[in-house]
């Protein structure tokens, strides 16, 4: 128990001291994941809308691909990006490996299916009649899409939160493509692995607390959104 208690005390002291090393890692983690989830939103929400409302050839296969992507192990995503960005890979000339953009690309690969899949499910739950109602009142396809996403906004927000939650806490992909380079690509999860291996349990635990805190906020938000529930009709 002694080692655990010592680690807890050290972690609290570290967070309280505002150590620059700690906050550099936290901010990089948040920056990388925020940019990645932003890109995932730009790609995933329109795609999710089309998959949610569309009746086109290949829709079912597309949904299977997206749903499979939702369960893509981060380490596999990292491996794929690594192979593409490595010197001998098709995008090797971009020299992005072991950089922040490489980590962002890997996290986009992980979070986009999550945002797309959850968005598609929430859009599909908006009754067809509501879209017909909008159309019957003169809405163009674009206005109809905006209204539908607005009506499904709780589900769409949950998709974004799920996408963010899925990448802020992953370690496999960013470790492979980022390399865990100090002051460059070290993020919370890779730092926890490193500090734990070095025996610096206090630092690892401090980062762990913060990660749990962020996860708590995200899940609290998700739960609140799910509990509030959307009603489409009376």
């Amino acid at each position: 128990m002694g080692v655990i208690w010592d680690a807890v005390v050290e972690a609290v002291q570290l967070i309280g001291s505002g150590a620059p090393y700690l906050f550099e890692i936290i901010f990089l983690s948040l920056r990388v994941s925020a940019i990645a989830v932003g890109i995932a939103m730009i790609v995933g929400i329109p795609t999710g809308y089309l998959l949610g409302v569309g009746r086109f050839f290949g829709r079912r296969l597309s949904l299977v691909v997206v749903n499979t992507g939702m369960g893509l192990p981060p380490v596999v995503a990292g491996l794929i990006v690594f192979m593409f960005l490595s010197r001998s890979g098709p995008l090797g000339d971009l020299r992005l490996l072991f950089s922040t953009p490489a980590m962002i690309i890997a996290q986009v690969l992980i979070s986009t299916p999550l945002v797309t899949g959850v968005t598609a499910a929430s859009i599909a739950s908006v009754p067809l009649e509501l879209r017909l109602q909008a159309r019957s009142l003169g809405a163009s396809w674009w206005q109809e899409a905006v209204l539908t996403i607005k009506e499904a906004r709780r589900g769409v927000m949950a998709a974004v939160v799920a996408g963010f939650g899925g990448i802020i806490s992953e370690v496999g992909a960013v470790m492979i493509v980022g390399g865990n380079i100090e002051h460059s690509t070290r993020v919370m999860t890779t730092a926890i692995v490193l500090e734990a291996r070095k025996g610096n349990f206090g630092t690892a635990l401090a980062l762990g607390f913060i990660l749990i805190g962020i996860s708590f906020v995200i899940n609290g938000l998700l739960t609140t959104l799910q509990q509030s529930g959307a009603r489409y009709e009376r």
Partner: peptide, 12 residues
């Protein structure tokens, strides 16, 4: 045109 359906489907 304008339509009214079985359920009113009011928006938020």
């Amino acid at each position: 045109m304008a339509a009214v359906f079985q359920k009113p489907y009011l928006f938020n």
